[in-house]
Nucleic acid binder design. Structure first.
Lengths: 168, 168
DNA sequence: TTAAACTTTCAAAAATTATTGAAACTTTAT
DNA sequence: ATAAAGTTTCAATAATTTTTGAAAGTTTAA
């Protein structure tokens, strides 16, 4: 396979994975494009390579900056803005984990904690079932949260080394 | 808060989380409803409690069975089908992990492996960048895959015990 | 059989989400 | 000042995803 074809295939696969996990397809594709580009790209170049409009490109780039996955770059003597992606895959994973934890896991943990204080008739099977499910989900979510917390601070080789060694 | 209000709140929160993670909101809500119900419910009851149509309820229940999260139950001397959810939260987590691994992670790993065999000019920065990103993502995805593989076979307390002990 | 009870299907409609593109805005150089 | 270069906004449109509901299908009991 040619490099050009391989790039397209990667961009497509990354976009599909993103959309399956609740990340806008275009956003995942722009990220993929920048991730495999040696050079920073302009909005024009991104628009052209992915056949998307200026408005879409602009909003998507803004979102990616908001996710901490790409940055603007200014080249000396040039008006245009260039964009480049952090190429460190472990940083990317941590950044995504950090944002999704904050935006999605934490609000749910908050609700679960509220719901675990609800009290009712201990003899009512409906109440008991509710209480147990909430408690169990809360425990699981708490463990996920702690693991993510560790991941956010950890060095890649230490993190996987520790996990995979235990699991052998 | 009343049990009834708490149930609604949980169903809403679970639906929202699902939709943020690429799972149809209604499917997550039906799952939530069955998870906190002590008794198995009929299609009628689910339709009524969530205000959804018969067609939607039927398709969603079929999907949930496909994900291995709920089962049909037949009560002696009754025509109607009842549905109930596995209440073991660790089983649920493993079942979701298993399905998403199969449906989403594995196809991506396949593409990444193909892409890591692409060859090109070792002096071309574009090629080098592509190659390195693919290699790094592949390694990360492989580690995630191994961890999920362990999780699928593991007992809950052993799994979290091992992880959280290492992380202290 | 047949008819009532129940389940499934799927084309059409509704709802949601993503994208466009042109106008407004900002910055820089002269 | 002003005009060119570049960026941002957002209402309108398009694409996608979800839901409906009625018809077709199935099962059971009499």
């Amino acid at each position: 396979m040619e490099l050009a074809a391989a790039k397209l295939k990667f961009i497509e696969a990354w976009g599909k994975l993103g959309s399956e996990w609740g990340i806008n397809r275009t956003m995942a594709q722009v990220h993929a494009l920048l991730l495999i580009s040696a050079e920073a790209l302009t909005t024009e170049e991104i628009m052209e390579q992915l056949s998307i409009s200026r408005g879409n490109a602009n909003m998507t780039l803004r979102d990616l900056i908001g996710w901490g996955l790409i940055e603007k770059q200014h080249k000396a003597g040039e008006r245009k803005e260039y964009f480049f992606a952090d190429k460190d895959v472990w940083n990317i994973a941590r950044q995504v984990a950090k944002e999704r934890k904050k935006r999605e896991l934490e609000p749910v943990l908050k609700v679960l904690n509220e719901l675990s204080t609800v009290n009712g008739d201990e003899k009512d099977p409906e109440f008991k079932t509710f209480q147990k499910s909430i408690k169990d989900i809360n425990k699981l979510a708490g463990n996920v949260d702690k693991t993510l917390e560790t991941m956010l601070k950890a060095d890649e080789s230490w993190f996987w080394g520790s996990i995979l060694k235990v699991f052998k």
